[in-house]
Design a protein around this nucleic acid. Structure first.
Lengths: 346, 346
DNA sequence: GAAAAAACTTGGAGCGCTCCAAAAAATTGT
DNA sequence: ACAATTTTTTGGAGCGCTCCAAGTTTTTTC
């Protein structure tokens, strides 16, 4: 491949002038410019190689999105939540004229993927993994962590999960519900983990990582009507687990209301209820979490704790582009009451 | 920022050895390795800077997706069709461990975006733009064009649009339809263009660019029942035009069947029909194109010419990764008959 | 214990570019 | 016509890395 120098040689000018022809044409006299352009054409030179520029300038004109934990980048497109998040990021990229890189990384390669990503900054999907954060900091590029606090020196954005969870419980409690089940998120891979108080499995204690906050909200709401979260069955399922609904209906048939941590989980409950002939909301109330577009289209439409997901993505990308002093943003959530919740049957 | 050389100096070894410690640790004696690692830690050196590697090796470990014409990268996430396509691409990237770059480019910056994209190859969304193709060829990287032929030296993948269109017309004709309208795609921006034979607007002639093939299929099917496409009203709307349905219902109220070039267009017809109290399929049959996931979920579910969109994306990415001799692939389509078509009312 | 073999380390070359201060050329003013 | 000014062009420096052939050290073999 020809280089700047080759073109310069043919046109009888220096490398610097050829560079200017492509990057600052106004600095070059018209006749010289034309000579250089002719030489470039003759050699099939199509402009400066970006690799050289990247080394010299250190800029990639790209930001990276690294999906959370066990997500492949295909899952970013598949998951309604991730997709909406990335939509927000991509809007910011469009405005900035930057490329959006979806960074690939398995559990083992994630830290090296961060070390090597060809980006000017990045967004880490929901991830409390301290190694990743350390890696990110070492890279000395602007980055933002989503749904995970990492101290005052790290950009982070998360929703006010506690308030959202509290609002969900209050809504159900006000309707008269007293028998609950909780679908929580399992952060390691594997089958659903079942915590059923007083049935040999022992009460839950802690270790719910990221989702702790939502549990706190649930606990507070339950306490307000005299219940303890320690007496509520909790089932943890991985984010994409399709059997979540079936497991909760099997294991906690007496519940009149199911609290979840994602619309996806709630939708599995809806689907399974239809399969079993359980009417929602007459026989069972279900509350989702996130307010994805999907949640409005289910039958019945889902009552859910909505957040502005796309806006979160936008804000994250804007923080990366701004590259300013670290900020921690907590975004509000809003309980959207739709058709999946009602008074419990007498 | 410290470099390989700094670490080498501190550890008392050469650059090459430090590089080996990070890239080929097995080649380095254990005690030396530890000394180097200690030095790196002390200096806060976190591994070789990818910029240097990129210049040296010329590899980015990434492929780029450049959306068609007037699409911003956010539209790639928004459009069900593009999203499914990119899903296929992302699956291939996951397997290859590569980053997927969504390349940003307005009409003016698209060629330079291609020239500068930090990727090892790319996929050009539907685009017949000759300049873009020339740009892509100059880059001398593997690339694939979607839904656009560019000769035997260029990788391309497209569906057999003509057969699909033919199948759609035959289906409707077999049901007894004889009064058609066609929703075609306008490839420039602007309001719908309306071609209504014998009403002053003149019959259509040509210039339907990319969509010509589907029109050929429609024409053939119409000819089989003694009709000429020159007598069928054709309305061209831009890909995201929300009024497509309204325009066709306004301008061709006598049609009993509407042929479209995308599920999106068909869905606008469905929506507008509901608004006007027109029953589908009893009063009006509608056929979509593409078979997006959405098309199965409308009310009624859409009869559509389905293609395997995700597979197309996968194939495209695989061709880029393979970097083999240019191929032109034509993918089959399949008419999926669902609820939006029926016999016309007597 | 010396020679042969194996294991490890070195440093030069080169990847292609852009910035910048200084030099050269062209233009302006008197 | 020459000095002063403005416009253009130059080429050195340096970005950080990896490969590789050659050199050095260590281990093995007899």
């Amino acid at each position: 491949m020809p280089t700047l120098a080759d073109v310069g040689r043919l046109a009888g000018v220096s490398r610097g002038t050829v560079s200017n022809v492509f990057n600052h044409p106004d600095l070059v006299r018209a006749d010289v410019r034309q000579r250089v352009e002719a030489a470039a054409r003759q050699l099939g030179y199509d402009g400066p190689d970006p690799r050289g520029r990247v080394l010299r300038d250190g800029k990639f004109n790209a930001i990276g999105f690294m999906p959370p934990g066990a997500y492949a980048i295909a899952d970013v497109i598949r998951s309604p939540y991730m997709r909406e998040l990335v939509l927000g990021v991509s809007i910011a990229c469009d405005e900035a004229g930057a490329t959006l890189g979806l960074i690939n990384g398995t559990d083992e390669t994630r830290t090296s993927a961060i070390r090597e990503a060809l980006v000017d900054g990045f967004i880490l999907g929901h991830s409390a993994d301290i190694d990743l954060i350390t890696s990110a900091q070492r890279r000395r590029l602007p980055f933002v962590i989503l749904e995970s606090e990492a101290g005052p020196n790290v950009n982070s954005i998360r929703i006010d999960g506690r308030s959202g969870a509290l609002a969900a419980v209050r809504h159900l409690a006000a309707l008269g519900h007293r028998r609950f089940a909780i679908l929580s998120i399992r952060r390691t891979s594997g089958p659903p983990i079942i915590h059923i108080p007083g049935r040999g499995k022992g009460a839950i204690s802690a270790g719910f990582q990221l989702d702790h906050e939502r549990l706190l909200g649930f606990a507070q709401g339950l306490a307000e009507v005299g219940l303890s979260i320690n007496d509520v069955p909790i089932i943890e399922t991985t984010p994409g687990e399709p059997s979540a609904g079936a497991v909760v209906l099997d294991r906690v048939p007496e519940a009149t209301a199911i609290l979840t941590m994602s619309d996806w989980q709630a939708i599995t409950v809806l689907d399974e209820a239809i399969r079993r002939g359980i009417n929602i909301p007459e026989q069972l109330s279900v509350v989702g979490f996130d307010g994805t577009a999907e949640s409005a289209r289910t039958t019945p439409p889902l009552t859910t704790v909505a957040q502005d997901i796309a806006r979160k993505g936008r804000l994250a990308a804007d923080m990366v582009f701004a590259n300013a002093a670290p900020k921690q943003i907590i975004m509000p959530v809003e309980l959207v009451v739709r058709g999946s919740t009602a008074r419990p049957r007498r």
